[in-house]
């Protein structure tokens, strides 16, 4: 189920990446709008720089993978998009993260309102110790959703390919599910309020291979409706599921950002090739 690279490869503003010729894609061939863009993004933890001057445009309705060795800043980058880094006190962000043309770090942006439009799935499944129904309905509840909650819960669980497995036990605890089911429950929870972007921080690294492959299938489907940005440790996974891939190397530098096929077949940078072929990192 691997995707061939996207036809559109708008150049990011990064100096490092370069435009490459288009490939073919089974999704669409037309040019995609940008869902999230960063401009000269620098992030510091205290004195330490975690993200070094990253500018990139992330296309809408595509799966964009962020890969790189551990500590390269890819998770930090992900958490900048929905401002989860605000929770870390020593963290300081410079530059811009544009979401729909608005810099999310502008003074008038409420991070809570921002997060209501950007879903997030974490490394370790973290369902709340509530019933499956209440887990999925959580976002609706806190946002004061006035529609038919049950219908939305069903839709979301279907969207997360979990409905058939849990439809008879919606009132049992989310913690009773298996790890893979829990992670899909977390995905259902994330998509229930209908966000525009879904951030995934190594969503399969705590799961067994079978459960992981189900999530991968799901991510592919999700890209029909949502912009998915996924951090992964696993290069095969990035190759399988993403349309675009960004390679971060140490020091939080974005080294190369391009169509996935290009990155994996013919990277511009020697370092990226070394990393992908396992010579480094």
């Amino acid at each position: 189920m691997s995707n061939t690279p996207s036809s559109d490869t708008r150049s990011s503003d990064s100096l490092i990446t370069t435009d490459v010729e288009t490939g073919s894609n089974d999704r669409t061939a037309e040019s995609r709008a940008t869902a999230v863009a960063t401009r000269d993004l620098n992030v510091y933890y205290g004195d330490e720089q975690a993200i070094d001057d990253v500018s990139m445009d992330i296309p809408e309705n595509r799966v964009t993978a962020l890969i790189g060795p551990s500590g390269c800043g890819k998770s930090t980058f992900l958490r900048c998009i929905n401002r989860m880094n605000d929770m870390i006190e020593v963290c300081r962000v410079e530059g811009e993260v544009e979401f729909g043309g608005k810099n999310v770090y502008d003074a008038d942006v409420d991070p809570v309102a921002l997060r209501r439009r950007i879903g997030m799935v974490f490394q370790k499944p973290n369902p709340f110790p509530k019933s499956i129904r209440d887990n999925v309905a959580y976002g609706l509840k806190i946002q004061g959703f006035d529609g038919d909650v049950d219908e939305r819960v069903e839709e979301s669980l279907k969207g997360a390919a979990l409905w058939d497995e849990v439809k008879d036990q919606l009132d049992s605890s989310g913690l009773d599910l298996s790890g893979g089911q829990q992670q899909r429950l977390c995905i259902a929870r994330a998509i229930a309020p209908d966000p525009e972007v879904i951030l995934m921080d190594e969503p399969t690294s705590a799961l067994d291979p079978v459960a992981a492959s189900k999530i991968e299938d799901l991510i592919d489907d999700l890209a029909e409706e949502y912009t998915v940005i996924i951090v992964t440790h696993n290069m095969q996974q990035a190759a399988r599921i993403s349309d675009r891939t960004a390679v971060f190397l140490t020091g939080g530098r974005l080294v190369e950002y391009d169509d996935t096929a290009k990155i994996f077949e013919d990277p511009e940078e020697q370092r990226v090739e070394d990393y992908i072929t396992g010579k480094f990192g």
Partner: peptide, 14 residues
């Protein structure tokens, strides 16, 4: 899916 070309309203909190 909302159209993200329209500027999202991120600051509104009642």
């Amino acid at each position: 899916m909302t159209d993200s070309t329209e500027s999202p309203d991120l600051q509104r909190r009642s």
